[in-house]
Nucleic acid binder design. Structure first.
Lengths: 209, 209
DNA sequence: CAAATTTTTGACCGGTTGGACAAACGTTAG
DNA sequence: CTAACGTTTGTCCAACCGGTCAAAAATTTG
């Protein structure tokens, strides 16, 4: 279906990387329509026509960025495996997702922006590749439930809740920091969040005994 | 500080409502920069200059919308009270928030858009009014913990997790529906979500026994 | 070196957008 | 009726934005 990847010079590879990095910064902060080619070009340290020499259209940059993003973004879920203790598996999935929110907030926001606008550019992927992956992992989780390893509940909504709680710390970062204030909103907030989420997902809120 | 509200004719009141309704539709779907005055005017069934007669600038519409939004948006949290059983209080707070995600998804997305872009227009409110409210409610929750009514954990992150999980069903609706598919993604998804969230927040995932 | 190729840039273009304005239209009160 | 006031619209503008183009500059190749 797809033609072979175009042959690229060293300069082309480097400049394209530079542009994608700049575009990630700009797109994740302003959304697609809120970002201008000029902004990206300036962030990448080049002129607009020069940028357009490497990516013919604004959309091409966004598309390339989104394709790369999705692979790394779904990696933690792909790793969720049937080996090892189920509760441990889930706990480390949550931890990995939270680490991604901490280390790649721009990627998270880029993705959130796209979904918020109705996912115009990646809807087919959501209904195809993503749905398949989630269904597959939901089956794994269901197996754990049948085996009595974790409580019976809805695996799909379980996955949603993990996505929601972890990505919240990237997408709503401004709000989180504002509410926590200067002292509690520092770097330690991710460890606090990790501790809280572990307890929530394992034990819930009922008091012990 | 603030001048008295300007006196308005009946027509002005009606037309302003019409515009705000149209603007909510457009802004929540496209973001602030992604929306044009023409789009809003058309959605409101009037010409652009006519719209600008009621709101002098695009920003004024957004600002008015945001002010109204915040009141209703925080209402459920304000209701969280020290009377009644703590677990019941939390459960109904979660339920109310989920109902808002179901019944006012546009408001949720408008808010999410604003936060995602770094909350340029409402940051002071987040650091002031919102933080005060959350701190207040966190104190209430801490009281419940001290009284042994609910498990000891971080009240701030608990509130975040409720926001995240419930608003997810409005903000990421496209993704939720895509993953659930045609059958499970119908109207019943909110009831499934409600059941799941109740179990998660009360009991967590550890198997019984 | 010189020719060929790749990279960079300034100038430009057509379409869109937020907003201004004056004139027309409608309504109401005296 | 008419003057005053509120409402609506067509027209216009300047700024912005995505993208083109030709020519200059830099680099690679022979």
């Amino acid at each position: 279906m797809e033609g072979s990847a175009p042959r690229r010079t060293r300069i082309q590879q480097e400049k394209r990387e530079l542009i994608l990095e700049a575009a990630l910064e700009v797109f994740s902060a302003n959304g697609f329509r809120g970002s201008t080619i000029d902004q990206i070009a300036e962030a990448a340290g080049m002129s607009k026509p020069n940028l357009l020499y490497y990516f013919r259209r604004k959309e091409d940059i966004h598309e390339t960025l989104m394709q790369r993003l999705l692979d790394t973004w779904l990696a933690p879920l792909r790793e969720l495996d049937d080996v090892g203790d189920p509760l441990t598996e889930l706990r480390s999935y949550i931890r990995r997702k939270l680490e991604m929110a901490r280390d790649f907030p721009r990627e998270s926001r880029l993705f959130a922006n796209e979904i918020l606008q109705g996912a115009p550019r990646i809807k087919p992927m959501l209904e195809g590749e993503l749905k398949t992956l989630v269904d597959e992992k939901a089956a794994v989780i269901k197996g754990w439930m049948r085996a009595g390893k974790i409580a019976r509940t809805d695996p799909w909504h379980l996955i949603f809740s993990i996505w929601a709680t972890t990505q919240h710390y990237a997408d709503f970062d401004v709000q989180v920091r504002a509410v926590l204030g200067a002292d509690r909103g520092g770097d330690g907030r991710f460890e606090d969040a990790a501790r809280f989420l572990e307890q929530l997902f394992l034990d819930g809120l009922k008091p012990k005994g």
